[in-house]
Amino acid sequence: MTMAHSEAGTDLNATALERSARNEQLRLLSLCAPALLLIGIVALAPMGWLSGLSFVGKDGLTFANYERLLHPSYQLTLMSTFQLAFVVTAICLALGYPLAYLTAQMRPRAAGLVLLCVLFPFWTSLLVRTYAWLVILQRKGIVNTWLENLGLIDEPLRLVYNFTGTTIGMVHVMLPFMVLPLYAAMKSISPDYLQAAASLGAPPVKAFWQVFVPQSIPGVIAGLIVVFVLSLGFYVTPALLGGGKVMMWSMQVERAMEVYADWGAASALGVVLLVMTIGVLWLISRLVGIGSLIERD
């Protein structure tokens, strides 16, 4: 104090305040340290190690693992992976948007109940749910039996062990990831906006499309990203409901490991998927601006 007093009036306590600010930053950093360390050890380090592995062959450094991926069968897999992810994302949006909209209009208690139902699938094992779909969708399953008894179809629909079955199962798994960000975004849209639109002469349908939907876009983008990215790397549901007919990228990884025990090939597949995913995220962020997802005034 006495030292500071001796200096010019404007610099009172300047060094001490600077030191205190620096200490505060260090304290905050030290609080984050355990989490950062954990991510480093269990996520970043293995990923670096795996991508390193992908460049290692029998005779040292090689690109052989990547060259093999140029084979048409891998391109087909990549195509069907993106196709499935795309279809699943689109259906999730089509189903999730009305559901989220309805929930956002409800009174808190009712909305809580609906959200509970949306989250309900998370409480049962993914494997159990997938087998349940097998039972429901198979040739002699509930769906086909009912449709036949109603006389709507003459022979059972092929609902499982193909693209359709995989899509149904995946949509079921992914729907909550679409509904939750949509609900959050819609909840933040004040009903006043729709009233204002109506007072300005907008019929309800126009007010919905011109005022409500544009403001819900951040939630839509967030849902699309989460569902699409998760679908790209999904394994269990396509493996069981696809019946070997739907080849996903993740199943190629599994095959490289289980059948050929080839760590290098598996790593290369993983790296390609990672790069693809980052590419998709980059593309979306270029299109809509990732800032618009985080920033809201």
Binding site: S190, D192, Y193, Q195, A196, A198, S199, L200, P203, P204
Partner: peptide, 17 residues
């Protein structure tokens, strides 16, 4: 319905889009 009443309205929180 409101959109057919032809009234101007100013809301408490402005409700600017």
């Amino acid at each position: 319905p409101p959109h057919k009443r032809g009234i101007g309205m100013v809301f408490q929180n402005y409700a600017l889009f």
